[in-house]
């Protein structure tokens, strides 16, 4: 199971990096979004995939899953949600101000 997750993380990172290296701001935003998804999967996998029951008091099982990574991922998802929303608004404002979302053209306008 772990190897499938590793491949998925790898693919997400690759696609994310590829999008970040492209020129249009919109693709860059999507790239960062994919990159953070990749890292969330990584966090889930690194802490060990499901091997026991849900960690709820009163349940009777031999082994329980570690609940910590899920709490971490939840926190991280919320943060990345906020940041992505901000980035989209910023990209839209930059598009309005510059009249383009190509990063190359934006740079030329200096001075």
């Amino acid at each position: 199971m772990e190897w499938m997750m590793a491949v998925a993380v790898g693919v997400l990172f690759t696609v994310g990096v590829y999008l970040i290296l492209s020129k249009t701001l919109l693709r860059i935003v999507l790239g960062t979004s994919l990159l953070t998804h990749g890292v969330h999967l990584l966090l889930l996998t690194m802490a060990g995939l499901k091997k026991g029951a849900a960690p709820v008091l009163g349940g009777k099982a031999d082994a329980y899953v570690d609940p910590l990574p899920q709490a971490l991922i939840l926190t991280s998802i919320v943060i990345s949600f906020g940041v992505t929303a901000f980035f989209f608004v910023l990209a839209y404002r930059a598009y309005q101000a510059h009249g383009t979302d190509e990063m190359d053209n934006v740079r030329e306008e200096e001075q």
Binding site: I20, L25, I28, T32, L35, T36, G38, V39, H40, L42, L43, M46, A47, P69, L72, S76, I79, V83, F86, F87, L90, A91, R93, A94, A97, H98, M103, V106, R107, E109
Partner: peptide, 25 residues
């Protein structure tokens, strides 16, 4: 400001992503 914020934001998102990856490892 808009142009520089885009760069600043991107750098920091990438480094935060690496931060979470480092914490995971």
């Amino acid at each position: 400001q808009l142009r520089e914020t885009s760069k600043y934001l991107l750098i920091n998102i990438v480094s935060s992503t690496l931060f979470v990856a480092a914490v995971a490892y």
